[in-house]
């Protein structure tokens, strides 16, 4: 193995590429949990949108814009369906979410056969991927441009969106109302907020994020559709959301961590380590991350209790 600069910058660029779909999905999860709806269907939304991106791409002869649009719309449609079941029909979010995740696998395979007469992998030279961009400053140093190799504009967009979601949730009136629903749904209702409407809209809009994640999978570093293309990234995003405590910035950092794990995993594949072991790395990392996150939560909680105790003692001392 050769730890040259080229090697490291390749890992960095691959980290960014691996990170962005997870980041987008975990932002979707974060927005939903802020609005007090439990969304575990990112996996399904992503898969459906990845598929429809390719379908539209193929039948429009490579229109990237229309493909992205198709991805976003299909993902929003799935999210809206999920929202309808959870919010309107009060069905169990876990069950419906899992149903959507597994159905989308069956549905995409079914449709893949209907459209393309194949079941495993669909790839054609006529398919056009997302435009790859290198930021202007990278051209000043050739080393930097390697770090940004193969990144599409949606990859950059994912980071812009992380900031945008932060501003939306914490600085705008609408975001503040949505967060309020998450804190105390009943209080929000008592003050005249149409809680269900807000939740429905939040969930549907979160579909946009999953849709973008989906096109990154099928039109990002490679342009193709393959059965179960998401391979658990939606679930990893759920963990990233927990790890980042549903705060956009925290979620972004957690996604970066999983991006690193995936990228390291795929790079180790070139070494003597067996594919089965490197393939398991992201999932093992997710389990370990959950453990670490829980220990940290406990520490924070204890510190808070400790501070509260101290405050009370001080107050009592002042009083006497």
């Amino acid at each position: 193995m050769n730890f040259s600069w080229t090697y490291i910058s390749a890992i960095i660029s691959s980290t960014f590429r691996m990170c962005s779909p997870i980041l987008l999905c975990s932002l979707a999860a974060a927005v939903c949990s802020k609005a007090n709806v439990f969304n575990i269907a990112m996996e399904g939304c992503m898969m459906i949108s990845a598929f429809f991106a390719i379908v539209v791409n193929y039948f429009t002869g490579g229109s990237v814009i229309l493909s992205v649009l198709a991805a976003i719309l299909s993902s929003m449609a799935v999210s809206a369906l999920l929202a309808y079941f959870i919010i309107k029909l009060k069905a169990s979010p876990v069950v419906v979410g899992m149903a959507i995740n597994t159905t989308s696998s069956g549905l995409t395979t079914y449709l893949m056969y209907v459209f393309f007469k194949t079941k495993g992998l669909f790839q054609r030279p006529s398919l056009v991927g997302l435009t790859k961009v290198t930021p202007f400053f990278a051209s000043w140093f050739p080393e930097l441009s390697q770090m940004f190799y193969g990144l599409t504009y949606v990859d950059y967009l994912s980071w812009v969106l992380a900031i945008a979601v932060y501003i939306f949730m914490y600085k705008t009136v609408l975001g503040y109302r949505i967060r309020a629903i998450g804190i105390n749904q009943e209080a929000a209702r008592s003050l005249g907020t149409p809680v269900e409407k807000y939740q429905f809209i939040t969930m549907t809009l979160s579909g946009i994020l999953c849709g973008l994640a989906g096109c990154l999978l099928s039109m990002g570093s490679v342009t193709l559709f393959i059965q179960n293309i998401t391979s658990g990234k939606g679930y990893i995003a759920m963990t990233a959301n927990n790890l980042g405590r549903s705060h956009p910035i925290g979620v972004a950092l957690a996604s970066l961590f999983f991006g690193i794990c995936q990228s390291v995993g795929s790079f180790l594949q070139q070494t003597s380590l067996k594919g089965q072991i490197t393939g398991a790395i992201p999932y093992v990392a997710t389990i370990l991350a959950s453990i670490v996150s829980s220990i940290r939560t406990k520490q924070i909680k204890e510190r808070k209790i400790h501070e509260a105790m101290k405050k009370t003692v001080e107050r009592q001392e002042n009083a006497s």
Binding site: V173, Y176, R177, R179, A180, N184, E186, A187, A188, S190
Partner: peptide
Amino acid sequence: FMLFGSMTVTENIVYNNE
């Protein structure tokens, strides 16, 4: 009480008429 516990007093009072 119908309050948003982790928000500030201001945010609680002005809710819906911000």
